[in-house]
């Protein structure tokens, strides 16, 4: 708004007054719209239902996982990081749940958010994680799912819709119940 205030004072500016006025109003409107946009994106945007955003993840083993290519399976998408204290608590549960369901058309994917290379591999080894995991470079998947904190676990049904979000650490039992429900639905 630097350039706009002074002009209308001057007599020569009288003719340009029309343009100046519209420019100021436009600027003000633009500013309000910008703040409005900020308000919109600031809201809770976690994907809690509906189509799960597609993503591509390169795993630590070098494989590429694309959500849309896992079609027809129940997908458990877990967001974690080595600096997340409560992720430690659910690591064993997640692996056990994976063992429970890995032969029943269920895919587990671990997304490692803003993490560091040697430590995350040590973590996977330490907890004996066997399902595919990969780094979320610059948090793209994290943002796409509107994750608000770690850990969060998304359960995606066979049609590719988010069926359930576990905010905070989850358990083998909790996760198992949800997966069974979806598998039951799928079968029936």
């Amino acid at each position: 708004m630097t350039g706009t205030g002074l002009t209308p004072t001057g007599a020569p500016a009288a003719k340009k007054g029309g343009i100046g006025r519209w420019a100021i109003l436009g600027l003000a409107a633009f500013f309000v719209l910008l703040l409005m946009y900020g308000l919109l994106i600031a809201g809770d945007k976690r994907v809690e239902a509906g189509a799960a955003p597609d993503f591509t993840l390169t795993t630590f083993d070098g494989d590429t996982i694309q959500l849309s290519e896992l079609g027809g399976q129940v997908v458990v998408l877990n967001f974690w990081s080595t600096w997340c204290v409560s992720c430690k608590g659910e690591a064993d549960d997640l692996e056990q749940a994976w063992q429970d369901f890995k032969d029943q058309g269920v895919a587990f994917v671990g997304v490692d958010y803003l993490d560091q290379e040697p430590l995350n591999l040590q973590w996977l080894e330490q907890y004996g994680i066997t399902y595919p995991n990969g780094p979320d470079i610059q948090g793209r998947i994290y943002n796409a799912y509107g994750v608000q904190g770690l850990p969060e676990t998304f359960v995606i049904d066979q049609q590719g819709n988010v069926a359930k979000v576990f905010v905070g650490p989850t358990t083998r039992a909790e996760l198992g119940a949800e997966i069974r429900k979806l598998l039951g639905d799928g079968a029936g």
């Binding site: 809770d44 997340c84 409560s86 994750v147 608000q148 904190g149 770690l150 850990p151 905070g168």
Partner: peptide, 22 residues
Amino acid sequence: MDQLIEFDLADRRKREGRRRPL
């Protein structure tokens, strides 16, 4: 990230804690 979540005394805190990861 769980520290704040334990503050369940008022729901407010829990919600905020979850909603504002940063």
